[in-house]
Design a protein around this nucleic acid. Structure first.
Lengths: 239, 239
DNA sequence: CAAAATTGCTGATAAAAATCATGTTTGTTA
DNA sequence: TAACAAACATGATTTTTATCAGCAATTTTG
């Protein structure tokens, strides 16, 4: 474990993102206790919050940043299973199940992340039934997302999944202000590991979408030129 | 909705499978209330407990039987995302998330299933914090399973996934007593929809494993002749 | 800044898996 | 029980995707 750089401790009460998080309904003393016992660290791009196989000692709450959660498959290939943004909580699943982490969380860019110790989180969970409800809702949402992703992985061709992934990146992290450029910058390999395909295939299909004027590739930046066409190529039942 | 045939109401207190279920820690009045308000029905093979898109009015608890939970993909192809056995609870995810069902639950054989109305389940959740904990644990376990399945779907060849599926069927439902014959009987198409492949491919690979004396095909019954070899072909990191 | 390393790109090829076609077996029911 | 439908099986073919190889561009670092 490398020593983390810390940033100014922000009281959860003042955190803008709390309203969207599982801590939305907390207040008063419970929130104070939570806030007082947390530590706030900065993770540089590429730094790991926790590692597959490690023991959970608490939960991570993203104050500002972008985090990928990934599993390393049997042949050593990374599969990105989730992406976290401001207000998202990480590492609670393994803690609740009393298991080691089954995934690794890595910062995609410099991020401010708060850490809430296990005992404080668990006691909050006991005291505050609304927190339990929020946790259950979050788990439910993520389970649904995982099952749908699993279905698409089994049934949809790579091109459709790539288009879907680009739309997902837009939903999750949005555009750079005033543009149609995705505000995450992933390597081609990371995009492939999100889609579930070989890197070369992802590259090829990206430049295909580029040639079709659906997206525009600007180095690592991706501009969505024709979102309707992108939705069409994703071939989603809803949307 | 077709009228369900009911079976003799069993008090949850007497249910042998309760110990392994999320209701393991419940007792006394709470359990009585749960038990008194439930209805017990028999679902014949192929009958549907609930349908993708439907509204959840309660949770289903499998007393005895085998249930598949599946999502229909965009092209109408079924993907089996989970299997339920005695003591398993179904339909709670959508209820907790206040959403419609995102999957369909179908009986794989004649099954006895109890139904607990929404309000009773939710009030039990509020009253009994151990139940919340169990629900969170269950969701956590299922989320982990889904993320691992997703990773394997993205990275492992069909043959390995098929072997893995057969081992999973053994883990879940076990053998017919005193034999090495899987106690679930699935159609080849269902096996394919569990593995995430085309039916023909599943058939071909099954008969390949048959020729290699790893399994023995006896109509719909599957005997696992050489489990070590099956584990090897599944190529699992753990195990 | 130049060298080295990583990442991105493209073509050729191989492998994996899906699809199509057709026949067989099994199960259902009139 | 005959006739029909559904499920199973297998071969041939096509499509999709992965792998391999070589090179260009970008980034990192001494």
């Amino acid at each position: 474990m490398t020593q983390q750089k810390t940033f100014d401790h922000i009281h959860c009460d003042k955190c803008e993102k709390r309203g969207d998080s599982i801590f939305c309904c907390m207040q008063g003393d419970s929130l104070d206790e939570l806030s007082d016992s947390k530590t706030c660290s900065i993770y540089r791009k590429g730094q790991v919050l926790f590692n597959e196989g490690g023991h959970p000692f608490g939960v991570y709450c993203v104050n500002k940043g972008k985090i990928k959660v990934s599993i390393v498959g049997d042949e050593g290939k990374e599969q990105i299973v989730r992406l976290a943004k401001d207000g998202d909580v990480l590492g609670y699943r393994s803690m609740l199940a009393s298991e080691r982490y089954n995934a690794t969380a890595t910062a995609l860019e410099d991020s401010q992340v708060c850490f809430i110790p296990k005992d404080i989180f668990l006691s909050s969970l006991k005291k505050d039934s609304t927190l339990s409800v929020e946790v259950m809702k979050l788990l439910s949402t993520q389970l649904k997302a995982a099952e749908i992703k699993l279905t698409h992985l089994a049934q949809k061709p790579v091109r459709e999944r790539l288009a879907e992934t680009l739309l997902f990146l837009k939903e999750t992290y949005g555009f750079e202000p005033g543009t149609d450029i995705l505000s995450v910058q992933l390597s081609r390999e990371e995009i492939a590991n999100l889609v579930g395909t070989a890197t070369e295939t992802a590259i090829r299909l990206l430049s295909e979408l580029n040639k079709e004027n659906i997206i525009e590739l600007m180095g690592k930046k991706i501009k969505i030129t024709n979102i309707k066409a992108l939705i069409r190529t994703a071939n989603l039942s809803d949307y």
